[in-house]
């Protein structure tokens, strides 16, 4: 969806931000680096990292952005567990954008890729 939203808005982004490249996250996305680090610290559940990332995001972007980011991160802590707990496959493995993104991010390394075979 990041790729699609960037294309729709005619903005160049670097998808490797999804895999944790801070420089890539800053490309084309306002507060991208801080948002990426905040998301990362929520998902890894490291309390110390989370406090640092939260303070950094708050400082550069303000509380409205922080609260929205917390909500999105919390939502996706859930989505993966819905998908994996019932083993759903990807809806369309043949779509060009999906294929490209999976290759670019090397998603086949994930255990749950087997659910889409």
């Amino acid at each position: 969806m990041l790729r699609v939203s960037a294309k729709t808005n005619s903005i160049d982004i670097d998808l490797s931000a999804i895999n944790g490249d801070a420089g890539a996250a800053a490309m084309g996305i306002e507060f991208g680096e801080q948002l990426m680090k905040f998301a990362e610290s929520v998902a890894t559940r490291n309390a110390e990292d989370l406090k640092i990332a939260r303070d950094e995001l708050l400082e550069v972007a303000g509380e409205l952005v922080l609260v929205d980011a917390a909500a999105v991160a919390a939502n996706f802590q859930r989505m993966v567990r819905i998908a994996d707990s019932v083993g759903i496959p990807v809806d369309n493995m043949d779509g060009d954008i999906g294929k490209q993104v999976r290759e670019e991010l090397k998603l086949s390394r994930f255990v749950t890729a087997k659910n889409s075979e």
């Binding site: 969806m1 990041l2 939203s5 960037a6 808005n9 903005i11 982004i13 931000a17 999804i18 944790g20 996250a25 084309g28 996305i29 306002e30 507060f31 991208g32 948002l35 990426m36 905040f38 998301a39 990362e40 929520v42 998902a43 952005v65 929205d68 980011a69 999105v72 991160a73 939502n75 996706f76 802590q77 989505m79 993966v80």
Partner: peptide, 10 residues
């Protein structure tokens, strides 16, 4: 894009 960056990284 910001939403999807957070969603994607998580």
């Amino acid at each position: 894009m910001q939403i999807e960056l957070v969603a994607g990284r998580v």
